[in-house]
Each structure stands twice: as C-alpha cells, then as structure tokens.
Design a protein around this nucleic acid. Structure first.
Lengths: 271, 271
DNA sequence: GAGTGGTCTAGACCACTTC
DNA sequence: AAGTGGTCTAGACCACTCC
C-alpha cells in the first residue's frame, strides 16, 4: 500500500508544515474517511520511515500525536492500531460498566487482578467513613471492551458492611453483589475526574506504555443510609471513552426519555 | 542549582529504569514536595542535557512525560514551567467560570477573540433548534486564570432569541447577559467530554504547542422553556482543571451543603 | 545577538513478540 | 531467528523570544 500524501489533501496553509503533522493529517484523513477501520494495524515504524522519507524519530512523533488525539493506540511492542469508537459513559448514572457497554452493542468483560483484606490507614479512613485500623477490602479489576483492556479499577470497600465479599464472584457487577447479598443500594454523588498520564504499574496492567495519556476518575459511593461504603479509583485509556452526562433535575420524565446525549456529529475541531 | 538524583530517592525496582523516567521522577518529587513552586521556570533543555549527561531528545522525553501528567507546562518557545493547581470545576452546576474561579481564590479573566453573525448550516441547525438559514451568533472567547490562558470557548447562540447580543460586553458572564437582557435563564442538562489533543488553531489561541493534550467539553444549553438556545464547545488545557461533579438527587439540602467534593488528598497513583 | 524551544537526521542497541 | 517497538546518542538548522 502506498501511504504517500495525495496533492489534493494538503493543507491550505501548507508550506512549512512540519513533516510529522503532514503524516498525522494523512492518517487522520484515512481514519475519518473510514478507509482505515478500527483495529487495523498500521505499518511498522521503519516502513513509514521509508515511505515518507523521514527518520524513525519523526515517524514516531506523528504516531504519538495521533495517539494523543485518540485516533490510534499502541500495544506494547506489538504495533500501532486504529482505535475503536469511544464508549459513551455516564459516571453519574447508576448504570454498571457491563450494562452500558452491552447497551452500545459491544462486549464487556472483567478480570480480577487481585483482592486483599487490609487495615485502613489514615488515608483510607478519610474516604471510607471508617476508623484507622478497621478492615477494608481492596479489589483490583481490569475491564475490557471487545477484548481490549480499557479500564483499571481500584475498589476500596468497607469490609464490615459486606463480610465475605471476597468469596463472591467479583468478575460480576459489584453493584449487583452489594444489592443481592447485603441489601445495599448504592448511589454515587461525588465524582472527580482529571486527565493525566499513566504511571508504570497502571500502564502495565492496561498493557500500554508508561506515560500513555489517561483519564483518572474517582468516586465516593454511598448506600441508602447515606453512609460511605466504597471508594473507587478508575484509570481509563483516554481514547476509550466519551463522558456523557445527563442532568435530569429540570427535565420532566417524558423529556428526559429518549434523549440522545451524544454530540458526536459536531466536529470537535475546526481544522 | 544541582538537579542530580540523590541516592535515597531512587526507585525500589531501580536498575534498568529508562533515563527519561528517572528525570521525570526527580522533578515530580521536587514538585510534590513543594520545592518547586507553581510558575517556576525549569532549566533550559540544554542545561538538563549537561546536568544529567543525556541527549536533548531524552531530556525532552522526560519533560513531555511530566507535561502529559499535568505537572509542568510549556509556553511556546519560552520554556517549561511548574503547573499551577488545577481549578475545580463542575460542568453540571449553573455556576459561571468567573464565579467558580473567584470562589477558589484565583483571578479569572476573559478575552473576546472574535464575534460573528452567521447563517446556520445543517450542522449547527441540528444542535440549536433552528432551521438551516436562521441566524446564529458565533463567539470565541479565551478564559484565563491568574493570567494563564486555560480555556478556549466557541459559543453558538440562537440569534433570534437575543437580538443585539454582540453589542453587549461579552467579556462578562454570558449567563448573566442572557438573564438580564433577555429574561432567559439557562440550564445545561447535556454535557459531553473527552480527552484529546489540540489542533493547530486551538493550540495557537491557547498559546501552547499543537498536539498538546487537552480536554474537550461540549454542552447544550436550554432556557426555562426547554428550548435550546446555545451550544458551547470548550477546549481546556488538560492540566488546568479537575472535574468535580455533585449529583444532588438523593441528598437532602442539608447534606448537600458544605460537601467538599475534592478527593485531592487521595494519591492518584500508587508508585 | 544570544538564548530557547521546535524540528529533524542517521544511525545504534535492547526487550519483547511472533513465527 | 526475524520483526517490532522502546530507548538513546550526537549532532544540525530554524523560528521565535528576550535583552
């Protein structure tokens, strides 16, 4: 395949556009046009180097740029691939990861990486309504969509409220387990999010290179008695999700229903 | 100043840690410890090269990593600086940028970059409850915190609902203008966010290098009659904000008050 | 004009994946 | 064993900022 840039696709303000941005543009156009489908493997960096007559450093700069935009991703030492569509996710809704992924016609899965019963330190007690020294559970799970790991979870649970939790099938929805086994109905009024980059251990778990861009999300979870029973930390692949929030307080139920909250069709940038 | 790495700050799993991560760690530690205050200029890349006995490419890799994490930022061709604290921002609250920045003891400002009266294309009509050909206003503003540009806004407004809007002082809160001059009270039930990277024009406006990581946020704004009057697109510097969402629906007013929604003290990563 | 970041070259060796 | 990405060297020239 010939990857070179057709003359009709050059930028209006061409001339003195850095090479790495030209290559970025080339692939961005192919991906947006649908010529490169999600999951497609890109050519090896050395092939790009030859095709475009640049050095590998420059080729990598273009690839890193596309990665930052979420158009492509890499699997450590395996290659570069076109990103699947983002999953739409509402962190304020009481809808589990599993449900919302299924609702969008994708296939979710969960792997329990580790479980641990530990004693709350000052740090955890602060977030969990427990005293220092009280028992808590720490559960680490990896969530995938269509076989691609997208989310690393660190769940901190008040152990006294759900004895025996670690013996239950933790690859299922935790919300369901809490409800079915302990009569706890969760809700999640406080959510924090910020863009960052992944440190070594999280990157490893998600199978990405350390320093890959990421969205960090934390959540304090209450039960029906307004007592904190869970504190979650989530590390998302930055290209895997689109946060869609519906605030219902002013909408009548009829209006709220059937609302499509994706602004997908609006171009994000005005290149 | 000597930037070299003291032996007691090496990682436990040292040995074969890439140079660029060691340098990252060095600066991350200094910043978290408070030895490097927000706004501090980092040494020139060439100085880092000499201090750490690496090449400039490797030095830049470390700096880019710190930038991705939000710890430092660059001003185009001026140098690298320690990032100020993130502003806490609730996109679901009807609180203006100005108000929320002031409430956190920082100084907000706004610059109008451009205003335009234009005719709705198919694209805009889809988001604004107007017909193709109806007039809309497009307003571009730059918002700053303590003199640092952090947010580029593209506001699309239904022009028929607020005639003469472009003649009003647009560096003020738009929500206030809508309320005071047109009797429109806004609310914003649909919000979309995703991490991306900035394209050339947006990067230029924010004074950052193209490709810098960013958070894109779009919003559909309704009036009190549930008709769409505004569609906003926001491009945030990724290191400038921390999204804090409070969902009130289950909380009694008493509980909702005084809730501190920052999970700040919880470490994001567990290096 | 000196200093600084932005871009780029032309190589190299290593670690890991794939076959 | 071959292929691929991950890391790194030792330079270079340019565009822009600061003085």
């Amino acid at each position: 395949m010939d990857w070179s840039i057709p003359s009709n696709e050059r930028r209006a303000w061409d001339r003195r556009v850095p090479y790495y941005l030209r290559i970025r543009d080339r692939f961005a156009a192919l991906i947006e046009k649908g010529s490169l489908l999600p999951g497609t493997k890109l050519p090896p960096e050395r092939e790009l180097r030859d095709q475009f007559q640049i050095t590998r450093v420059t080729a990598r700069q273009a690839l890193t740029q596309l990665e930052a935009e979420g158009l492509i991703f890499r699997e450590n030492r395996r290659g570069w691939f076109v990103s699947p569509p983002r999953i739409q996710y509402d962190p304020t809704a009481n809808v589990s990861f599993t449900e919302s992924v299924l609702a969008q016609g994708r296939t979710p899965s969960a792997t329990v990486l580790s479980t641990e019963r530990m004693i709350a330190s000052a740090r955890e007690s602060q977030f969990l309504d427990v005293e220092v020294g009280d028992p808590i559970f720490l559960i680490q799970r990896l969530r995938s969509i269509d076989g691609r790991a997208v989310l690393l979870e660190h769940l901190h649970v008040n152990a006294e409220r759900c004895p025996g939790l670690l013996g239950l099938p933790l690859d299922r929805s935790l919300t369901e387990l809490m409800s079915e086994h302990y009569g706890i109905s969760e809700y999640r009024p406080h959510i924090n999010m910020r863009p960052t980059a992944l440190a070594e251990p999280q990157a490893q778990a998600l199978g990405v290179s350390p320093g890959a861009p990421s969205l960090y999300l934390s959540r304090i979870i209450y039960d029906q008695f307004d007592s904190i029973i869970e504190f979650d930390q989530e590390f998302w692949r930055h290209d895997a999700l689109e946060i869609c929030i519906n605030v219902h307080h002013h909408l009548s139920p009829v209006q709220a229903e059937g609302v499509n909250n994706s602004h997908d069709d609006m171009p994000e940038t005005l290149r």
